[in-house]
Nucleic acid binder design. Structure first.
Length: 256
DNA sequence: ATGCCTATGCGACATAGA
């Protein structure tokens, strides 16, 4: 079972690129982030025609996540528990063919310090709590998405250039270490323990041609999922396409 | 030190992204 994550940065603008990529790579599950539309605005017909079911947790103008799947998906959670006044559409989870799949759009957190950064750290803790609940089920779980954290200096082109950014702050990295320290397996680092493995290149300042990238899109695997890990990868070439997203798809292949 | 670029919304600029 191939499970992918792709921050599309606007489903409206990105639909042709998304359909190309689905047709080419045929993931069984695709977790989307930043669809930037309400549920009714999601292009269900085009996704259905491409051979996928769609679960959508949308929001007007920004945020919004979705789970596309070849098999029917049963929703298990919509929104992250723990902060009732949080109305951002950033989390959706489903059972797909016996695997629990979560699509995650963790807050960016800039500018920092400030309320957006505080929200990011709270959200990170709430995700860790949900992850612990899933961990306890001993099921195969894949938490895939845009975590908005560069875990180590290997995960960005220039540590000094990003020193003030919310994606690399010690508190952000500590939150990532707490989550992964619980035992969740970083799929890309399982197949490539060190070195650049970027998943995002800014639209600005020639970041793509200069390879000034970040690794911020991650798939975390529970033990039962990690036991089935066959391979994982990054579809880098998607970044070179016409009207590309600033993120590219990242995926894991599970045996069985 | 700052903006560079892109997507969206009831828009003719602002907000958000990272």
């Amino acid at each position: 079972m191939k499970i992918a994550t792709f921050n599309v940065n606007g489903i409206g603008a990105r639909l042709p690129r998304l359909l190309d990529w689905l047709a080419e790579t045929q993931p069984d599950v695709a977790c989307l982030q930043e669809i930037k539309t309400v549920d009714d605005g999601f292009p269900v017909d085009a996704i259905t025609a491409a051979g996928y079911h769609a679960l959508v947790h949308g929001q007007k103008g920004f945020n919004g996540v979705a789970i596309l799947s070849k098999l029917p998906a049963t929703e298990t959670q919509r929104g992250l528990p723990g902060e009732p006044e949080d109305d951002h559409a950033r989390y959706l989870e489903a059972d797909v063919g016996g695997v629990i799949v979560g699509t995650i759009y963790l807050p960016n957190g800039n500018p920092q310090p400030g309320p957006k950064f505080d929200y990011k750290l709270r959200w990170f803790d709430r995700l860790r709590a949900r992850a612990a609940t899933l961990w306890a089920t001993e099921r195969a779980v894949v938490l895939a998405g845009d975590y908005n954290v560069c875990p180590t200096p290997d995960d960005l082109f220039n540590e000094a250039a990003m020193a003030g950014d919310a994606l690399v702050q010690p508190e952000t990295r500590a939150a990532w270490r707490r989550l992964t320290g619980d035992g969740w397996r970083d799929a890309i680092r399982a197949v490539q323990p060190s070195g650049a493995a970027y998943t995002f290149w800014d639209y600005q300042a020639g970041a793509w041609p200069r390879d000034h990238g970040l690794r911020i899109d991650h798939l975390l695997l529970s033990p039962a999922a990690a036991d089935r890990l066959a391979t994982a990868g990054i579809d880098r070439t998607v970044r070179a396409g016409e009207r590309a997203s600033d993120h590219v798809p990242v995926w894991v292949e599970l045996r069985g």
